[in-house]
Design a protein around this nucleic acid. Structure first.
Length: 452
RNA sequence: CAGGAUGUAGCUCAGUCGGUUAGAGCGCUGGUUUGUGGUGCCGGAGGUCGUGGGUUCGAGCCCCAUCUUCCUGCCCA
């Protein structure tokens, strides 16, 4: 008796939504393919050993774990229960829903590397699951559209990713800001201010710069144990707000004594060089040294795209990870990739009202009829229409013509063919245009040629 | 996980100070020439007011708990 409901943070998609979602998927897919990426898929679930420890502690907590089948309680005793849920979890669950597409991809690469042409460029469009608390633009099941290249550390890949982002966003008509940073710059920063190994804390704090301001950031860092000296050295970076070129210069000064930092700068400059070779103007690309991103596996470039004019999280993100496959026993494979968040792109386009009009998947021609005989008469014609490649259907029940036309109307079927005793006798069918209301008597051949 | 809102018909929402039989619009359904939809007119169905307790002569309204959804933070796509 209870009303049906749907799992928190998940959604159903109706026909109209699916048309739009497929449009988004299709656009992204065609751009990926244009850049030489090939599709793969991986299972919805992975072994927990594959997933755990790849996303940081917080990520581990957001993993959906799958209870072992059968009698999962067989092997646990009172002592296991007392040890707490974390240890217990490992005894009753060994699989989980995938949290992103990158880690399963890394697993795939390691398992198949002898068959892959390196560098391997793959794209992957699949749902992922996170046990997050839902809010605007955040769902527990959502699609990612990933494209990654592994087996090369060429910065051409980074540049091509930037190109693909532009192409996709322009196709959708979304105004966006694209921010780029490099993990090595963050590391260099911590070295430059004499807080080696603290780049994580540092990144988290300066990430909040535009939200809480310089004073609060310094306060937070002081609390976390950064010395006065370090903080004073940090000061110049707060002044960074010029053009990308100016910022590069400032950073180079700061990184006099940091090899890693210099390397980060060099990498980014190289990306910029490639982009200009591709002829991309750099209005939409911004160096943002406060960009940190939480996923712990990034080691080089970091990307983040936000839609302008809509209050929602990032709609695309990515970066380079030098050693992801190392966790699966194949060190030395560098990879870089991005992920478009379809669900957020959908929300953005919905909010900005920029979906193309008149997109629908529907029947072109409906056969309406007055009875059993007429229905039978319609079937061969229906088959002919379909052979001609026309989306067409017959109203399957014998019922009032009013109801049948109403059905056509609701489904926005543009043309109907009405068959009654008169039509069967003469062979001239009533062909009606639903939007204009006009109708005429035509041979079926004539109808087909009209619709073609 | 923290803070703030929310829940009344299929949907969007009214519902006064706690007071009789809980309303509207849209949608649905039937009729309005038994061969014509999308605009008109007439009728009809549909609600355990999120759930569970409590206060009261009396609760949609007040109190407590719980769940849902949404928003903000953190984090992310």
């Amino acid at each position: 008796m209870s009303k049906p409901s749907i799992v928190k943070g998940t959604r159903d998609f109706g026909p109209q939504q699916m048309v739009r979602r497929n449009y988004i998927f299709g656009t992204i897919r065609s751009v990926y393919e244009k850049f030489g990426f090939q599709p793969i898929e991986t299972p919805a679930m992975e072994n927990l050993s594959t997933l755990m420890g790849k996303y940081g502690e917080e990520g581990d907590q957001l993993l959906f774990k799958i209870l072992n089948s059968g009698n999962f309680s067989e092997k646990i005793g009172q002592s296991d229960v007392e040890e707490g849920y974390k240890k217990l979890t490992t005894k009753i669950s060994e699989k989980g829903l995938k949290y992103d597409l990158t880690v399963p991809f890394a697993r795939y690469v390691v398992m198949n590397r002898s068959d892959l042409a390196m560098p391997f460029k793959r794209y992957q469009i699949q749902p992922v699951w996170r046990g997050d608390r839902p809010q605007k633009g955040r769902y527990r099941e959502f699609y990612q559209c990933d494209a990654d290249v592994v087996g090369t550390d060429s910065l051409v890949c980074e540049a091509e990713i930037v190109l693909m982002i532009h192409e996709v966003m322009n196709a959708f008509g979304i105004n966006f800001s694209l921010k780029i940073n490099n993990r090595k710059i963050l590391t260099g920063l911590s070295e430059a201010i004499g807080a080696v190994g603290q780049e994580g804390t540092l990144a988290v704090a300066i990430d909040k710069l535009d939200k809480i301001g310089k004073e609060k950031v310094l306060e937070e860092l002081a609390e976390k144990g950064f010395s006065e000296d370090s903080l004073s050295k940090l000061d110049p970076i707060f002044g960074i707000a010029g053009t990308n070129q100016e910022n590069f210069l400032k950073l180079e000064e700061l990184f006099e004594n940091s090899e890693t930092g210099k390397q980060g700068i060099d990498e980014l400059k190289q990306v910029w060089n490639y982009l200009s070779a591709f002829g991309l103007s750099e209005e939409n690309i911004e160096l943002d040294i406060t960009l940190a991103r939480g996923l712990s596996y990034y080691t080089g470039a970091i990307f983040e795209v936000k839609a302008l004019g809509v209050q929602i999280g990032s709609i695309t993100g990515g970066g380079r990870y030098d050693n992801l496959t190392g966790a699966f026993g194949a060190p030395g494979l560098s990879g870089v990739g991005i992920s478009f968040g379809v669900d957020r792109i959908y929300d953005v386009m919905e909010e900005l009202n920029i979906f193309p009009d008149n997109q629908s998947v529907t029947t072109k021609l409906l056969f309406c009829h007055f009875g059993k005989e007429e229905l039978n008469y319609a079937l061969p014609l229906l088959q002919m229409a379909r052979l001609a490649g026309l989306n067409s259907e017959v109203y399957p029940d014998v019922s009032k013509i009013k109801k049948q036309l109403d059905y056509a109307d609701r489904k926005q079927i543009p043309y109907v063919c009405i068959i009654g005793s008169e039509e069967m006798k003469s062979g001239k069918l009533t062909f009606k245009n639903m939007s204009s209301g006009e109708q005429e008597k035509l041979d079926f051949e004539e109808i087909l040629s009209k619709l073609r």
